[in-house]
Design a protein around this nucleic acid. Structure first.
Lengths: 177, 177
DNA sequence: ACCTGAACACCGTTCAAGT
DNA sequence: ACCTGAACACCGTTCAAGT
């Protein structure tokens, strides 16, 4: 089996996507993976260290997935369909949020180490979108619009709300059709 | 001076807009207004009751403000400038989120009474936008897009990010210019 | 190297008790 | 009618102690 560090990250990620950083409990986490909460601190000295590791792994995987797709498919419309599909997965998977989307809302109460990784996630997404969309602030706007669509769909508890909003973005011309 | 119930709501609102529902502490709240945390429960039996009262007051005020503007100004572009300005205020005021925007992220861990008020806030905004924008899902899309712009700007700690995103929405044709 | 029990100061909540 | 102190089971964190 995998090392404990990874086991902790794997259990913590869906929890944060559902309840946020503040809603993550070391005691519940320990109960889930069969370890005492004090033992988690051996692998991640503080909650901030765990949060930062979580966010870093998240943007690394997102970056790899986005680049892998755009490397073999240069069509802007196809790339944007892939991008929205990535954000849709979180909703499909237990009506969860993008990890860094939730952390962005909580940014005010986050340790600096976590904040930095959240900002990097946004950078990764916006940089990738900028290689596909027209210049200026369009990439930033699309990043924000998709985040907002996810948030709205989640609060409705209805994935089809996400689809309808994205379709409306396309119809309006914000996203390439 | 105002009654204690209102004093509590006035102190709790900016706290939730900054730290969320989970980040609201009855003890800190009590310290701020000079009352014991146990006394807050006299006015609001549970944290959920306080959260619901907060969200309800929030959408009531938003509804009143939006209607007051559109009653005397029918121009779609002007109405949308007013709408975005309302969401901008939260950022200007200590880089805070829309109260119900934050609660939407936390929806999973919210008592049902709070959830219902959050949904009503979305309804209020979308219904108002629908009286101004072309039919279909455009109102829902604009609601989501502006929420996302606020979230992105907050995570950046930079109000001008909100302005740039909104301007980009206008340029793309999502919002009437 | 990795885990634990016990303690610390926090949290929302309850309730008997005060005025 | 309104407020409080004390208790309850929670929380992240620390640390001496175990293996």
């Amino acid at each position: 089996m995998a090392d404990m560090r990874e086991t902790i990250l794997n259990a913590a990620q869906p929890a944060v996507q559902a309840h946020g950083y503040g809603g993550l409990s070391f005691r519940e986490l320990g109960k889930e993976i069969g370890i005492k909460s004090a033992s988690i601190h051996y692998h991640f000295p503080t909650k901030g260290d765990l949060g930062a590791a979580l966010a870093r792994r998240y943007w690394e995987e997102a970056q790899a997935a986005l680049n892998a797709f755009s490397d073999t498919n240069a069509d802007p419309a196809a790339c944007l369909r892939f991008y929205t599909a990535v954000f849709r997965v979180a909703l499909e998977n237990g009506n969860r949020m993008c990890l860094c989307g939730f952390l962005a809302a909580e940014i005010d109460g986050l340790p600096e180490v976590v904040r930095a990784e959240v900002k990097t996630f946004v950078d990764v997404c916006v940089r990738w979108l900028a290689t596909i969309l027209p210049g200026g602030d369009r990439a930033l706007a699309v990043y924000a619009a998709i985040s907002g669509a996810q948030l709205a769909a989640r609060s409705r508890g209805d994935v089809t709300v996400f689809d309808r909003i994205v379709e409306s973005y396309r119809a309006a011309g914000l996203i390439p059709a």
